[in-house]
Amino acid sequence: MNLKPWMAAAFVGMAGVAIAQDDSTLSIDGEDFVTETAAPAHVENLSTIYSGWRFRTPETQALQEDDFDNPAMIFVDQGMDLFNAVDGAEGKSCASCHKGGPEEFVGLHATMPKVVDGKLIVMEDLINTHRVEVMGAEPWKWSGADMQAMVALIGLQSRGMPMEVAIDGEAAPFWEKGKEIYYTRYGQLELSCSNCHEDNYGNMIRADHLSQGMINGFPTYRLKQAKLISRHNRFRGCIRDTRAETFAEGSDEFKALELYVASRANGLDVETPAVRQ
């Protein structure tokens, strides 16, 4: 694992009380979710992958098990209002073209990010491209409330479907770049994503119970910020906590990392919008 001695101490310091993922089954309104499955072949260092839900306390878990109790759903409602709201020079809403409603996007979220015309595209790109080019509207801020409400609304359409992100063909070079970032140590603490989420999942880092860092529930309602948190916002937070200069939200680096991290969850069900601490 090659950690500095003090780091190892930080991770195992609470090992006596640390418990790994629990055995609970995530069930939302009667539908069971896959929160544990064999790791995909391209995740060499894990044998089993687990949803972050399995690492949370029963109280936090319960918030995701009922769509009314899940506070993220008020933002999904707002996303629905936005879907129908006319915006921009062309006088169109999302619904003007997507007459089938958000249901047109069933399954899309489970396969994102993906490469289109040689470019790696994440959901936020797709939304803003359509806003600017089709609606003549201003692009939304990456982690803004409107954008993440829309990402959550579209993501919800794939809830319960297994993550199935392509890593081969045109995606391969982006995926390799994301993998390199995942295993690179950043910041004054010299920590890579893998140091916490691969080598030490299930352990405590101070009072935090480390998960495998799966993103199959994003955007996720974080109790800390009490709002929907984007994938890139969470990446930024993690890298910032290593005391590093972080990449920007929407940067090529974070898009590549998103592809790689999303692919590590292949086989887990989409939980969007999840609830985490």
Binding site: M204, R206, A207, D208, D241, R276, Q277
Partner: peptide, 8 residues
């Protein structure tokens, strides 16, 4: 109330 490593 726990003060998290990263989450808190």
């Amino acid at each position: 109330v726990t003060i998290g490593g990263c989450g808190g």
